[in-house]
Design a protein around this nucleic acid. Structure first.
Length: 503
RNA sequence: GGCGCUAUCGUCUAGGGGUUAGGACGUGAGAUUCUCAAUCUUAAAACCCGGGUUCGAUUCCCGGUAGCGCUACCA
């Protein structure tokens, strides 16, 4: 393999295993790789790490690709688009791994190990009991090559171990600086199991080197494994790449963020109605801040320009849903109305339990435009629009929070007067007419402020607080036209409420 | 147990040998509105502890503590 690493353009990779949904931690790793590649004019590679055959499933790979694309990332090489260094999926590459391993054995940089699992376990326990580093004691390290070959030929099972050289291992990390490990604490690791299956730490090195990866950007759970990998690069005579180990994302309890903290996969966020650009913006801010640290809002394009791997913080970060929602509100407000409405549609369809006609879709778009700006995430829209979507006079009259307003002495007068006016009104009732009628009641009955508005509000929506009538009335009228039987109109509401009120 | 990484408001962070330690989310107050949400204004809120180095450390060094990770014929 030629040495064409660092001199050429940056090549980075995101290498997830297809074992389930893409988690925010991994998504953030993917994002930082992508930002780095795009800003350097480099290459972003997607590699599927499916060596863990038991846990990997093909359908997860499709899911995974969809999820990352939803976030807004694209890649130049990958299992779906190909590239100059295939395969981009690890299965069926075992021959390559085994060839390199044999080469290491032939060169004396690795050796066959015949130790039994029970012995290794025992030695490990002993070392720990004596407060020592539980390293492989080196039993087979200096076995005579001919002797080893004889035992192998005789059918004795053996694994292949890398010989860790007797010198400290240093490597450079873009976010942490130089990191050094004493060789005393790095054990001769198995690179190929006695079953012939290569081990992860070995496989990544071969894959990264074969794909000419120049910058390994990954989670910091790999930091302690890096010296082993560096030793492998060196044994194989390959140039060691730059590393960048990203800190862990924690939950509010400072534990590693996981399902138990709620929605944490890309699919979860999408289903909640979090916009991809909001999530991208938020994830970028977890561990990175621009110079000055005062700007918070970054479009994907701006992130590509401003992002700086060297400015990434090494300390772990707690995932703050509130801040994500704040950004999401911002992007819901800023987004093209047609796009936001399109994204909101499924939430209405589900809440209403009906197929949406073209007219109904247009109506949903109006609801979204009128009420969507105050919502944290799109799935809250039906609830926000509850005053329009739902109508239940009996429940409104029974609600404890309405009690005080309903039994106020002026309430009956307001209700009667307003209902009479509405009854005489032609449909549809306009927002202007509605407001004018309230004014008239105010003048005629001499009642104003909350005593006037609250009863009318309860009559119309069932609650004494909610969005402005100017917004509600047109939506109710249009809704009753395009979704008759599902959405009640203004006159219908008033009539039904008065019947319930009297009865 | 060993080794590694980390440590600024509740949270995300900026900063850095002398600063009123800056911004944002959230929280409190006010404005606005019939009301809720949103919005605007405003306030409170932080350098983990102990030693050094220094005229001076939150900043540099060492130690401690805590959190996390790795320590496998897991990935």
């Amino acid at each position: 393999m030629e040495q064409t690493l660092i001199a050429g353009k940056a090549r980075v990779r995101f290498a997830p295993s297809p074992t389930g949904q893409v988690h925010v931690g991994n998504a953030r790793t993917a994002l930082f790789n992508w930002l780095f590649a795009r800003q350097q004019g480099g290459v972003f590679i997607l590699r599927i790490e499916d060596t863990d055959l038991e846990r990997s499933e093909a359908r997860y790979e499709t899911q995974l690709i969809e999820d990352i694309q939803w976030l807004g990332l694209d890649w130049d090489e990958g299992p779906d688009v190909g590239g100059p260094y295939p395969p981009y999926r690890q299965s069926d590459k075992w021959q390559v791994y085994s060839d390199y391993a044999e080469r290491l054995v032939a060169e004396g940089k690795a050796y066959r190990c015949f130790c039994k699992q029970e012995d290794l376990d025992r030695q490990r326990e002993q070392a720990m009991a004596q407060h020592l580093q539980p390293n492989y004691p080196g039993t087979c390290r200096n076995l005579d090559a001919k002797e080893a070959e004889r035992r192998r030929a005789a059918g004795e099972p053996s694994a292949i171990r890398l010989k860790i050289p007797e010198k400290p291992i240093r490597f450079h990390d873009i976010v942490r600086g130089w990191v050094e490990f004493s060789n005393e604490v790095v054990s001769d690791l198995i690179i190929v199991r006695s079953t012939g299956v290569p081990v992860y730490n070995y496989v990544v090195v071969v894959d990264d080197a074969e794909m000419r990866v120049t910058h390994v950007i990954r989670g910091d759970d790999h930091l302690s494994n890096t010296p082993k990998q560096v030793a492998l690069y060196e044994a194989l005579g390959w140039e060691v790449p730059e590393f960048a180990h990203l800190s862990t994302i924690l939950g509010p309890d400072k534990e590693r963020l996981s399902k138990r903290h709620g929605a944490t996969s890309l699919a979860n966020f999408r289903e909640m109605g979090v916009l991809p650009e909001a999530l991208m913006n938020y994830m970028a801010l977890l561990g990175w801040a621009p110079t000055g640290g005062e700007r918070e809002i970054f479009s994907p394009t701006e992130l590509v320009q401003e992002f700086d791997l060297a400015r990434v913080t090494p300390s772990p970060a707690v995932f703050d849903f509130e801040k994500l929602y704040w950004l999401n509100r911002h992007y819901i407000k800023e987004g093209a109305p047609e796009r936001i409405a399109g994204l909101a549609e499924p939430f209405f369809a589900r809440a209403l339990g009906v197929e949406l006609t073209a007219d109904a879709k247009a109506w949903c778009a109006h609801v979204t435009a009128a009420l969507g700006h105050s919502v944290n995430k799109l799935d809250e829209l039906p609830e926000r629009a509850g005053p329009v979507l739902k109508f239940d006079p009996a429940a409104a009259l029974a609600a404890g929070e309405n009690e005080e307003v309903l039994k106020a002495e002026t309430t009956g007068k307001v209700l009667e007067a307003f209902a009479a006016k509405i009854a005489a009104e032609a449909e549809p009732v306009s927002a202007e007419r509605f407001k004018a009628m309230i004014k008239e009641v105010q003048k005629e009955a001499g009642i104003k402020g909350p005593a006037l508005f609250h009863p009318i509000r309860i009559m119309l929506t069932g609650a004494q607080s909610g969005p402005e009538f100017d917004k509600l009335v047109p939506l109710m009228e249009e809704g009753s036209r395009v979704l008759p039987g599902t959405i009640a109109g203004v006159k219908q509401r008033v009539k039904a409420f008065m019947e319930a009120w009297k009865g």
